[in-house]
């Protein structure tokens, strides 16, 4: 790609370059992480003791700060028949190297629950997904119709939106104690937090999208004989459907961000519980694996929905989803290689 093309405003690069950039987007942070993890003279503020020598309190595998290690060895050298401790530079335990996390992505699923009441990773994930699902469904069942009404009928918006705007600024976690008092300590208050976190934004976002409807189409429909309710159901709603669908994708992402807060309300549960437990046992590779899993689930859901959207809305003419572009490119290359 010629250099000028990189800074041409609003110009998409060719598909092959797009794909490479998408890969790089993930590869670069991982490369940085690998650099810090595997190149011994970058960071590595600690020493992992191999041979404790004659330092009394050192044991093999112990992590000590470099300065402390040097100090202890200096003290030992001064004493007779001394044997200095040896070790190698290491990173803190909370920064496991990529390969450990990659392995954990697999082994985390096989990590046995330590205590009674602890859960397997897949059980934790399933519980989290269930919480998100119900929270988002309940929020959408209320928020989408309300948003559409607000967007379509200004008096309705005047009645509803100021109050919603007010509540929207209250952080959803603030309702945690209330939710527990009213709904008990199990799933219900967690779902409620997700609903509270999503619903108020949802009404406003959906209403704004609906408000941007094309008045020319409404007028055209009126001259064709469409009346009030027909205008709403047969013109405004289908006219906004693609945008509403994309709004919902973004809102689902927001729902995920409330998950971690929701899951510590009442009895801690789901993926948050798993993460907290593993952090307690200092299995930080499992912690990272779980966090990455949340990201993967989010990305796959979103791209899956984008892919699905193109099936449901054949009239839209936008950029294909990344997933689809990726599959198409793989297909094309497979075809050309064959």
């Amino acid at each position: 790609m010629p250099r000028s093309r990189w800074f041409a405003i609003g110009k998409e690069p060719p598909p092959r370059v797009r794909l490479v950039l998408t890969f790089l987007s993930f590869l670069l942070p991982v490369a940085l992480w690998a650099l810090i993890s595997y190149v011994p003279w970058i960071w590595h503020p600690l020493i992992r003791v191999n041979d404790p020598g004659t330092v009394a309190w050192f044991t093999p595998g112990l992590l000590v700060e470099r300065a402390v290690f040097a100090e202890e060895n200096a003290k030992v050298v001064a004493t007779p028949d001394a044997r200095v401790a040896t070790g190698e530079r290491a990173n803190p335990v909370f920064l496991p190297p990529p390969h450990a996390v990659a392995r954990a992505l697999w082994t985390a699923f096989a990590t046995k629950p330590v205590l009674k009441g602890d859960t397997w990773l897949h059980e934790s994930l399933a519980l989290s997904i269930r919480t998100i699902f119900w929270g988002f469904v309940i929020s959408s069942l209320l928020g989408v119709p309300l948003g559409i009404l607000c967007g379509a009928y200004p008096p309705f918006a005047r009645l509803v939106e100021p109050a919603i705007d007010f509540v929207r600024y209250m952080p959803a976690p603030a309702f945690g104690a209330l939710a527990v008092a009213v709904l008990g300590i199990f799933s219900a208050p967690k779902i409620a937090i997700i609903v509270v976190g999503t619903f108020f934004q949802q009404v406003l976002v959906i209403a704004n999208t609906v408000r941007r409807h094309d008045t020319a189409l409404i007028e055209a429909a009126q001259t064709l004989g469409a009346r009030r309710r027909q205008l709403l159901l047969h013109v405004i709603v289908p006219g906004c459907l693609v945008e509403l669908y994309n709004d919902q994708r973004i809102l689902l992402g927001w729902a995920w961000t409330y998950l971690i807060v929701a899951e510590v309300v009442g009895v801690s549960s789901g993926i948050t519980f798993f993460i907290n437990q593993q952090a307690k046992y200092r299995n930080f590779d499992n912690v990272y694996a779980a966090i990455i899993l949340i990201g993967i689930i989010g990305l796959v859901t979103d791209q899956g929905l984008a892919f699905l959207g193109r099936r449901i809305f054949p009239w839209q003419t936008r950029q294909p989803s990344r997933l689809r572009a990726f599959l198409a490119l793989l297909g094309r290359q497979g075809g050309s290689n064959a």
Binding site: L217, A220, Q222, T223, L224, G225, A226, H234, L241, W315
Partner: peptide
């Protein structure tokens, strides 16, 4: 507005989510 006064606008006001036939059926 009423269907006994049909209108054709300068901007194309076809419903983008409907096929050609369904536009005419509207």
């Amino acid at each position: 507005p009423s269907p006994d006064r049909g209108m054709v606008f300068q901007g194309y006001t076809l419903f983008p989510w409907l096929t050609v036939k369904r536009n005419v059926m509207f």
